[in-house]
């Protein structure tokens, strides 16, 4: 893999995390459990899709094949998406939606914090700009983790089920892929080993307050960063790409 290819993949991986989670949250638009929550989650969706857009624009520039951000977002095949498995998991119920958001937002915050020091000035600038919004995503999802976890018997149980189910996808967040390693060596990407301890500390702090327990079986699922996904990504892409596949180059 050349440096240029690695950089392109690194940007795409980051953009895909944001786009796919943004798409997941936008599925809740008009279907949130409460009006206020509906607006809150849709706001987060818009933030994430905004971050993805800046990143796709930059990736298109690096790729230099005359494609634009929409073509990158909507017209790649499934194995060309490099998002982590966590973000493509379905909404299931509100507990899953919140647990997924919390697990991702803590990572996303630490990731952007480090990426601000990238020697790629474009990535550093995008990281700096996105960070404040992500800080709010952590706050929003932590408060819900605590209220549901330390809430009623039913809410505690549902929250714990979601945590038990999604926890296996969190290790991928801080595990270095080949692309991560190449970018670290170039001084562009961040050292995920460095944020692992911070990630676990923050997650444990909130989980403890929420009276939730972290699964200890050590089982993990990875592959997203290499383009190997769970069945769920195909379904999201079908919905996202339907319009462009059916009516190529359609605009509105």
């Amino acid at each position: 893999m050349t440096k240029k290819e690695a950089l392109y993949n690194y940007i795409i991986q980051t953009a895909d995390n944001n786009l796919i989670l943004g798409q997941r949250l936008s599925e809740l638009c008009g279907h949130g459990p409460e009006l206020e929550v509906d607006i809150g989650l849709t706001n987060i969706a818009l933030d994430l899709i905004g971050h993805a857009r800046s990143l796709y624009q930059y990736a298109a520039e690096i790729q230099n094949l005359g494609k634009d951000e929409d073509q990158l977002a909507f017209l790649r095949a499934r194995h060309e998406y490099f998002n982590v498995l966590l973000v493509e998991q379905p909404n299931e119920d509100f507990a899953y939606t919140i647990a997924r958001q919390f697990f991702f937002s803590v990572f996303n915050y630490l990731f952007y914090s480090e990426l601000q020091n990238s020697n790629d000035s474009q990535l550093a600038a995008i990281a700096e700009k996105s960070l404040k919004e992500v800080a709010y995503h952590i706050r929003y999802s932590s408060e819900w983790m605590i209220r549901l976890g330390d809430g009623t018997d039913v809410s505690h149980k549902k929250m714990q089920v979601a945590v038990d189910d999604l926890w296996k996808y969190t290790a991928e967040l801080y595990t270095m892929s080949e692309v991560d390693q190449l970018m670290l060596e170039e001084g562009i990407g961040i050292d995920l080993n460095k944020i692992k301890a911070l990630y676990l500390a923050k997650v444990e702090e909130v989980m403890e307050e929420a009276t939730l327990t972290i699964p200890t079986n050590g089982w993990t699922q990875k592959g997203g960063k290499e383009g190997q996904h769970t069945e769920h990504l195909g379904h999201i892409l079908t919905e996202m790409q339907w319009m462009q596949r059916t009516y190529p180059n359609m605009k509105w």
């Binding site: 206020e36 929550v37 607006i39 408060e143």
Partner: peptide, 20 residues
């Protein structure tokens, strides 16, 4: 006005609903 479970959540909801 809006609905929320407690004061902290009311502030977050207000941020999302009224200061976008």
């Amino acid at each position: 006005s809006l609905h929320a479970a407690d004061a902290e959540m009311a502030i977050e909801n207000a941020r999302d609903v009224y200061t976008r």
